[in-house]
Design a protein around this nucleic acid. Structure first.
Lengths: 331, 331
DNA sequence: CTGTTAGCGCCTTCAC
DNA sequence: GTGAAGGCGCTAACAG
């Protein structure tokens, strides 16, 4: 591969001249400029990205790190981020945190392979995030509250409250025996949703049975398996609250297989409001997370930091109840 | 940010010693190793990724470039790629080609910011791809046949044939007046699907009317708009073939809004078999692309090239008809 | 086993 | 307007 040196040599000028000509950094006589450009074309010269990054100490890349590239949850988030990133003339890359400490995510964070990072990956340890903090390297976390660390910006959704509202809705519609299918133990989001659920139960003097709290994996299959367990336990609840929509969809499948009518025998409620939610049968009642707004806000914050502005390091966003047909209505 | 120099100084050793100790490249006495590691920890040293890339001239990153990060089409493809990439201890990043020549995609390709690239982005010009070819830099394209260029590997789906099969199915079920909603003009996939459609028509002595070929944008909204136009034209076809599922979903919405019964009044068929397809009402009959296999194959090829093996530069994958309920059956 | 040193490819300051 | 030279942070000969 041709380097700028080769170009300069072929054009018969010095390296710096070639650099100026190619980048338009400085006025260069038109004739020399032409010579350089012709030489570059002839050699099919392409600048080496790594070298420039090293020299400039910046990439103009923002990295969005997700625990799962393939989940349907993220598309709106990505869209929000992408719009802002592009407006600023930066590039966006998305990578997965699959593999925990040895993941792509860890590499990008630790080795600062982007100018800023937005993180939505429950499997990344807080310690790793802290270790990656550097001056002028904005990090936004979406799935936990790290506002104790002033160099990390936390943008959170009020999971506890959203979950409380959902549980309250279930209770208001007449449910008394509600099962809760959690996500991964490590997920703070899932923990907070369970807490909101418990609070609603308590406030309405309804007992919480731990046998009705099953763990899933935030995937369709996780919800399916958890629901099967629930069914095999014998006594059916009159409602199931899934900590995310994907699990709810898997759950609905399991329920249908066992000829359990939704919502007449069992009400189902989810969390997230993914794009699929309105399409399944029955259309899923759920709690909408402001995913697009999260994306926009997070990336705005990144650029504010990059431009040297002071920003708060904690933001909280509210959820919204989306009522469809998977919960039996009492009126 | 601390550099390896700082670490070496604090530990009282030479830079190379620090490097060896940190990377385990060479046997270093345990005591020095400890000193170095302690120093690194104390300074919170993190290696600079750019510098290493430059030095090593490799990143251990494979880039997957998609025209649209947020479409539902890609998840299986991503999964296939991710599995193989991880098996090889490489990292995967996904980026968008939105913005054409000035996109992230172009940057990664031209500046070789990854060790290999898989490309599924109709808006990237072939010229750009060619310009980016370098020795030992594998590029796999999924959306066009570039087998004329020996340094580029083409993995294609047999779009023409898949489309032919789908059109034939429609005809066999009794459809005579079939509208075809294309994707973007630039998309070769879309063009080939149109060709297959035309061939089926011709073979069955059915006329092709260009007024019944409408252009969409491969998005739900594109399908919705195209279908509205179709409806406003007055005469309704008895089947609509959408060049992808997303458009079919938008189309079904438009049809429903106009109280047109699917499949009794109008049959609908899509292409791709995205995850949503079985969930919509009626479940969508479509042509399945082997997306997961494409991902696996592409990434395998990348690593074969990286390991210096010779590989063919053209592969063709077959599609499969998925029959659900959006096409009226004649028996 | 450890230290010195030469680049990787690029940009940019400083003389001319 | 142009050229020589330094250095970004790292690794890996090579010499001790």
């Amino acid at each position: 591969m041709a380097t700028i040196k080769d170009v300069a040599k072929l054009a018969g000028v010095a390296v710096s001249t070639a650099s100026y000509a190619l980048n338009g950094t400085k006025k260069i006589s038109d004739s020399t400029k032409q010579k350089v450009i012709t030489a570059a074309k002839e050699l099919n010269y392409q600048k080496n990205g790594y070298a420039m990054d090293l020299k400039m100490n910046k990439t103009k890349i923002i990295a969005l790190i997700l625990s799962d590239l393939i989940g349907p949850f993220y598309s709106e988030l990505i869209q929000g981020v992408q719009e802002v990133v592009m407006e600023h003339g930066y590039d966006l890359i998305v990578c997965s945190s699959y593999g925990d400490e040895s993941s792509t995510a860890a590499k990008f964070l630790r080795e600062k392979r982007a100018d800023g990072v937005i993180l939505f990956a429950h499997n990344i340890e807080t310690q790793l995030i802290q270790d990656s903090v550097r001056k002028g390297f904005p990090i936004v976390v979406l799935d936990r509250d790290l506002s104790d660390y002033e160099d990390i910006i936390s943008v959170n959704v009020n999971n506890e409250h959203g979950s409380y509202i959902a549980a309250k809705y279930l209770i208001d519609q007449g449910s008394k025996n509600i099962a809760f299918v959690s996500g991964p133990k490590k997920s703070i989001d899932s923990q907070l949703r369970l807490e909101g659920f418990k609070r609603a139960l308590k406030e309405h003097n309804l007992p919480y049975y731990s046998k009705w709290n099953i763990n899933g994996k935030f995937t369709k299959d996780g919800g399916y398996q958890a629901t099967k367990m629930l069914i095999h336990q014998g006594q059916l609840p009159d409602a199931v609250f899934y900590a995310n929509d994907e699990m709810a969809i898997g759950g609905i499948e399991a329920l249908k297989e066992n000829h359990i009518d939704i919502p007449n025998q069992v009400s189902v409620i989810g969390f997230d409001d993914i794009q699929l939610a309105p399409y399944i049968q029955p259309p899923l009642t759920t709690v909408k997370q402001p995913k697009y707004e999260m994306g926009k806000l997070s990336s705005h914050l990144i650029f504010q930091v990059l431009e040297g502005e002071d920003v708060q390091n904690f933001y909280s966003l509210e959820t919204e109840m989306i009522i469809r047909d998977s919960v039996q209505r009492s009126f």
